[in-house]
């Protein structure tokens, strides 16, 4: 089955999924904190749009609700909270470029290819177009993790974590028409709680180590040798 045979709505879905992947790359590479938060908001918006499309196509009514929930939470609330945190911590003009960006981007590209390879066997059971979205969402999850590995800044770590959640959500929405509403609500609530906890955590580590660089947490180890 080729792309041209799919209905237009599903083509749009694929385009949006590809854009979500792109925002993941933007998040990974973005030097400015504020821009990274915006990129995250865009990712959320795209996911909300995908949810709406799946809802229209599949007729699962509760997906409208979860789209709304995603929109409120990931496009408005969390970015707003992060923004406020950044303002409060006086990091608005903070930039921190990725070290060796070319290598990290290549690693991310390799992850995309790898997740595609992982998703290949699913072709036997499912529609191709589902497999493809699974590959993309897996890549988003992996890139989120990669981001947490390579970005020491705490706010960016949170963004990486949240984008991992976005990837999982994308997979759930596009393959199984979304999780049961109850689960979704629970996850959303978890994310929110995590956000609040992270806020507290920022303030705490800022107070104790004068920085949001998580590499500094190394100092908290017991062995003195680790300290430079």
């Amino acid at each position: 089955m080729t792309l041209a045979e799919l209905p237009l709505l599903q083509q749009l879905l694929l385009v949006l999924a590809a854009l979500v992947l792109f925002t993941s790359f933007v998040l990974l590479e973005q030097a400015r904190l504020v821009s990274a938060i915006h990129a995250f908001a865009w990712q959320g918006a795209l996911i909300a749009a995908i949810t709406v499309i799946v809802a229209t196509g599949g007729g699962a009514k509760h997906l409208y609700f979860s789209a709304l929930l995603t929109f409120m939470l990931k496009v408005l609330l969390i970015p707003w909270m992060l923004h406020r945190q950044v303002q409060r911590l006086d990091l608005e003009r903070h930039t921190q470029a990725l070290r060796r960006p070319a290598l990290v981007i290549m690693a991310a590209v390799a992850l995309v290819v790898f997740s595609y390879w992982l998703a290949l066997p699913m072709v036997a059971q499912e529609l191709t177009f589902t497999r493809n979205i699974v590959a993309v969402s897996l890549a988003i999850v992996l890139i989120g993790l990669l981001m947490m590995v390579f970005r020491p800044q705490a706010v960016l770590q949170v963004l990486g974590f949240m984008s991992m959640e976005n990837g999982l959500f994308l997979a759930a929405v596009s393959t199984t028409q979304g999780m049961p509403l109850l689960v979704e609500l629970g996850v959303a609530f978890d994310v929110l709680v995590a956000m609040v906890l992270f806020g507290v955590f920022f303030l705490q580590i800022r107070d104790s180590i004068e920085s949001l660089d998580v590499d500094r947490l190394n100092r908290l180890t017991e062995t003195v040798e680790n300290e430079r």
């Binding site: 590209v109 493809n132 993309v136």
Partner: peptide, 9 residues
Amino acid sequence: LGHVILEVG
């Protein structure tokens, strides 16, 4: 990659 992953069934 998009071409390979998403478009070619």
